[in-house]
Design a binder for these strands. Structure first.
Length: 288
DNA sequence: AACAGAGGCAACCGCCGGATA
DNA sequence: GTATCCGGCGGTTGCCTCTGT
């Protein structure tokens, strides 16, 4: 449609952020909250485009960011979520409290990819490298080409398989629809079906168990209490529906299990693949 | 000590899709 | 129904730091 980019205005800074810019942005968001990113720079007196401000805030300045090295548990979770979701970094980030999509993406590209390759595992397909090559049975160049075109499709089919398996257990309409939307690809991937089903059921179980350790942290509880909110102890369980694995403080699950009476009276939002991904990125920790 | 290459990470770019006029 | 706005996402780039020679 040819919309002009939002950052075309002259007189906008680019590159690394200065301390002063950071302070201005933080002060503005503390005072006014996150809102219209397009108008924020002007209102905050920043010579940056809105996108740049948003990125800086989300990836670096947000107070709930963890920073620091990834733990082994986080490593494992990232690998498992990547196997489940592919390169949906925001989805993965939504399930790792205090981590950003950019951080996880960088970490994947710099650490985990290499680690998996060293273990002889294809980081895209999560299958043994030898098996991938053998399946192709062609020259290396051709293999690469085939992997690019075939394997992502195979991966989609696998995810749909996992979604379908989980849907039958959870009854989640979103997941069922997600699985259905992949059905044509699924048919092409029929030979791997039963193996994939077993593998992903296993993954789902592992995720449920791993995530049990991701209840609210002590600091979060203290912060919440300091703000005058209800203590979080009564909300320490993890919602285990597929679309809300993990937790994010203060954000409730979209599955409906933990919605308030008032919220439940409101009609659920229209489902779409994109909205599913977006809402699923803000999972709850409140199970009933 | 100087240099080159690799690694890590912050930031940018271009695209997509929902919302809205 | 169409055009545009806007927020968000994933891929990519470029700079800085680290490490080995």
């Amino acid at each position: 449609m040819g919309r002009s980019p939002c950052c075309e205005q002259a007189h906008t800074n680019k590159g690394a952020w200065t301390k002063e810019e950071d302070q201005r942005l933080v002060a503005y968001i503390k005072a006014h909250g996150e809102g219209c990113w397009r108008s924020l720079p002007k209102a905050a007196g920043l010579l940056r485009c809105g996108k740049s401000c948003r990125l800086r805030w989300i990836n670096y300045l947000r107070p709930d960011l963890k920073r620091g090295n990834f733990t082994d548990d986080e490593d494992d979770l990232i690998v498992k979520f990547h196997e489940l979701f592919g390169n949906k970094w925001s989805l993965i980030a939504g399930r790792l409290p205090g981590r950003t999509d950019n951080e996880i993406k960088n970490y994947w590209n710099t650490h985990i990819k290499r680690k998996l390759l060293a273990r002889g595992i294809d980081p895209q397909t999560h299958r043994p490298l030898s098996a991938s090559s053998a399946a192709a049975g062609t020259a290396p160049g051709q293999q690469r080409q085939q992997q690019q075109h075939y394997l992502p499709r195979q991966q989609d089919a696998d995810r749909a398989e996992a979604a379908a398996a989980s849907a039958s257990a959870s009854g989640s309409p979103e997941v069922e629809e997600a699985a259905c939307s992949r059905s044509s690809d699924d048919e092409r991937a029929a030979p791997a079906r039963s193996a994939a089903r077993r593998r992903h059921l296993d993954i789902d179980l592992n995720l449920s168990i791993s995530l049990a350790a991701y209840g609210p942290h002590e600091e979060e509880e203290e912060e919440e209490e300091a703000r005058g909110g209800a203590p979080l102890q009564d909300a320490a369980a993890v919602c285990l529906c597929l679309n809300s694995l993990g937790h994010r403080p203060g954000v409730e699950c979209v599955c409906g299990a933990s919605r308030s009476r008032q919220q439940q009276q409101q009609p659920p939002p229209q489902w779409s693949a994109r909205s599913f991904l977006q809402t699923a990125a803000a999972p709850c920790y409140r199970a009933q």
